[in-house]
């Protein structure tokens, strides 16, 4: 009997031992997995290149989105401001992937970049898929422009548009009651034809904005206005054609643009690149911000025109 008891105890001890081995085994596997997953990343420090991204249509939009986060041109200007104040930023690369946008928003960014240049911070533009019209306006402010061969750029010009729904209104027998203080108050009204006086007034605005566009490009590119006007008829062009027309300085990639920024700022080849911070919180609320901010009420822009002069490439 004593022997059987000892054998039973041995079996129980074996069971406990297996459990302990299993615990140790699982713990080792977890630690092994952790060591594979966690990599020690040293934060970038020292003098380097700051990155600013101009994505999508450029608009000032609201001062801040529904979640209190800055959006549109305002956030870009704030980012540029922050980089200008940062002592470790010796050069800036502006990654542009935009068909342009509103005149005021584009000019705000342009002026901010010019201020950076005055502070002797070299600014390099890197064009993505599209950097046309207002997108090019922003690039023109930079010291150096790098575009891909296939980048769509150019489209130098100003545009304002509104649909003419008069015939549609007539068809359905819809009439608008308009009470206005002056004859131009409903200048881009969609329910009637535009008068020649209104057209002339808007054309004057367009011409004025166009003149400013050409002047600013000439100033930014260090070219004569007459040279710019030759190609500033709204035409779009590829990166390689833009190089021939001296609208850009070189064809290349984003990495080339970063290398050029380092070269202009006399930085080492491996100097750090400071991307825009993307905390998970900002990512989530940024997405919501853009989603909420881009929502328009159906038909709101149709009946009540939004007065927009745009440096924009119409795709």
């Amino acid at each position: 009997m004593e022997r059987e008891r000892k054998l039973t105890v041995a079996i129980l001890a074996m069971l406990i031992l297996v459990a302990v081995i299993a615990i140790v085994d699982i713990s080792f596997k977890i630690e092994e997995k952790r060591s594979r997953e966690i990599k020690l990343v040293m934060p970038d420090t020292g003098a380097g290149v700051g990155i600013v991204r101009v994505e999508g249509p450029i608009e000032l939009s609201a001062p801040s989105g529904p979640f209190g986060l800055p959006s549109g041109a305002e956030s870009i200007v704030k980012r540029l401001d922050a980089l200008a104040k940062d002592s470790s930023i010796k050069a800036v690369v502006i990654r542009i992937n935009s068909p342009g946008g509103t005149v005021a928003a584009t000019q705000e960014i342009y002026e901010k970049i010019m201020k950076l240049r005055k502070k002797n911070i070299p600014v390099v533009a890197s064009m993505g898929d599209v950097a046309a019209s207002g997108g090019y306006y922003v690039a023109a402010a930079c010291n150096h422009i790098v575009a891909n061969y296939g980048t769509v750029t150019g489209s130098i010009g100003v545009i304002a548009y509104s649909p003419n729904l008069r015939r549609l209104f007539d068809k359905f027998g819809i009439q608008m009651n308009v009470i206005k203080s002056g004859k131009y108050k409903d200048i881009l009204a969609t329910h009637r034809d535009m008068t020649s006086e209104e057209r002339a007034l808007l054309q004057e605005m367009i011409d004025s904005s166009y003149g400013k566009f050409v002047k600013d490009i000439a100033a930014g590119r260090n070219m004569s206005e007459s040279d710019i006007i030759k190609i500033a008829d709204g035409r779009v062009m590829s990166g390689s054609t833009a190089l021939q027309n001296k609208l850009i300085d070189q064809t290349g990639t984003f990495e080339d643009a970063v290398m050029k920024a380092r070269e202009l700022a006399s930085l080492d080849e491996d100097s750090p690149v400071y991307e825009e911070s993307t905390s998970p919180f900002n990512e989530i609320f940024g997405q919501l911000n853009r989603f909420m901010g881009n929502r328009n009420m159906p038909g709101s822009g149709m009946l009540y025109p939004v007065y927009k002069l745009e440096y924009r490439y119409m795709q």
């Binding site: 406990i16 085994d25 713990s27 977890i30 997995k33």
Partner: peptide, 21 residues
């Protein structure tokens, strides 16, 4: 008591190990 432990260990060994273990 040990049956509970055994069950937890078995499911952990069969599943994906994580710090939740």
């Amino acid at each position: 008591l040990f049956e509970s432990l055994s069950g937890i260990l078995l499911l952990s060994l069969l599943g994906r190990e994580s710090a939740f273990f």
